[in-house]
Design a protein around this nucleic acid. Structure first.
Lengths: 232, 232
DNA sequence: TTATTAATTGTCAAAAAGACAATTAATAAT
DNA sequence: ATTATTAATTGTCTTTTTGACAATTAATAA
């Protein structure tokens, strides 16, 4: 009979793929690893799961510690558990992806950790299987964002339709017709038009919108169809 | 600086929610637990992740051992890692859901493990957080099946539209109009009509269909809309 | 006043979805 | 042989959604 005591024990970690949007491009936040092996190489934000916390707790703790942000959108992706993924000792890692407002981060930048934003398409090679994690996270982000209104998590409280439009194009790596996009996004009823305009981008200026939070929370599980000709 | 050696180590397990369909109802396969604590109580099929296998490997091994089946549809769900979910020792468990053809199973039933099929809506209380796992698996099955053609995995190679119809109604716990369902399911192009009829269910008999495997594999990632008025 | 630039809005046809019930193919009963 | 019965199969119509298309508007700069 199998007993607990005979079984091998492993380290368990979390790794977070942190997505942000600078108004033009999708970015991810990377850090220089602070411990051996592979010290000073670029890696995802991560850490070990402590004795009195769940993996979700650990991911939130790591994000708080390295970005100063609390309550960010965080979603469990999958577990990475190939026996030799960490060369020192067997470590299983729970992958998470996080969506944050890049501007909130900048205000609280923490220099203790050498963290840096990279364009998603122009990032350094990462340690271990972190490159695979990023690829998986991108795929999952695309999947989720096509069906659920989660990309707002990467925008400021006030945002414009053109901003949202570019974000959708970035995430899906495709062109989306402005007229159809505008129609769809407004028909969700999730947006509230403000009187103010953003005048930084053009002469005419673009109206700001904000999320209808009640509807957002009520509809966060609803299926949308915001990306045309969707294939995953 | 954090070092590996200082970090706590944990047991890592897998637990599988095995779904089947008897032609009328959705069922799950449970086993009587063979080790303390909670020995002889009903639980999910599970086991510890061995030193030379990934969690995916472990889940496949457990399924093979307890059902005799290989290559079953298996999908990672999430990790369950509350610190005290296992009262003996900290154990994190990776939850999987599996879809199997209940008839294939019966042919290879393994009595070494006291395994039994239960109606999904009339099952015994399970140990630890396994009840939560079943609830999560059901939700995820519903989500996935609404968008991707995975329920075929629970049917024999030859099946009828009425069978498929009942299965969709069971999974989604809702009535679905036969005419609209038939139109949608045939319009996917995934079904090939056979000359033979299933005469066990009615006087008229229902034509058998089989999956177009090439299209199935090519379209397994495609989005469908097989459930009306979808809300998740 | 006109040119320029980006934001905003509109139309139409095709496709998909949803609501609805009649017809058909077989067997069982008379 | 005819009729009754039962479940499988198929059809129509309307509404909604989608996708493909470009003209108009609001502001500033020339």
């Amino acid at each position: 009979m199998i007993e607990y005591s005979r079984q091998p024990h492993y380290l368990v970690a979390v790794d977070c793929i942190v997505f942000g949007f600078d108004g033009e491009h999708l970015k991810i936040l990377l850090v220089k690893r602070g411990l051996e092996p592979e010290i000073n190489k670029w890696s995802l934000m991560g850490g070990f799961v402590g004795a009195n916390e769940s993996p979700d707790d650990a991911a939130n703790r790591v994000l708080k510690k390295m970005t100063g942000l609390e309550g960010v959108y965080l979603e469990q992706m999958q577990i990475y558990g190939e026996p030799h993924r960490d060369p020192i000792e067997r470590t299983l890692s729970v992958g998470y992806f996080a969506l944050i407002d890049i501007h909130k981060y900048e205000a609280q930048l923490n220099d203790d950790y050498e963290a840096e934003w990279f364009l998603i398409n122009d990032r350094p090679k990462l340690i271990f299987d972190h490159n695979q994690m990023v690829a998986d996270a991108r795929k999952k982000l695309r999947y989720k964002a096509a069906l659920h209104p989660i990309l707002f998590e990467m925008l400021p409280k006030k945002f414009t339709i053109p901003q949202l439009h570019i974000l959708f194009e970035e995430v899906n790596d495709t062109k989306i017709d402005t007229r159809n996009f505008s129609r769809k996004i407004t028909s969700t009823g999730l947006l509230i038009k403000l009187a103010e305009k953003d005048r930084t981008g053009s002469k005419k200026g673009a109206f700001y919108f904000k999320l209808d939070k009640k509807k957002y929370q009520a509809n966060s599980q609803a299926f949308l169809n915001l990306v045309p000709n969707l294939k995953v």
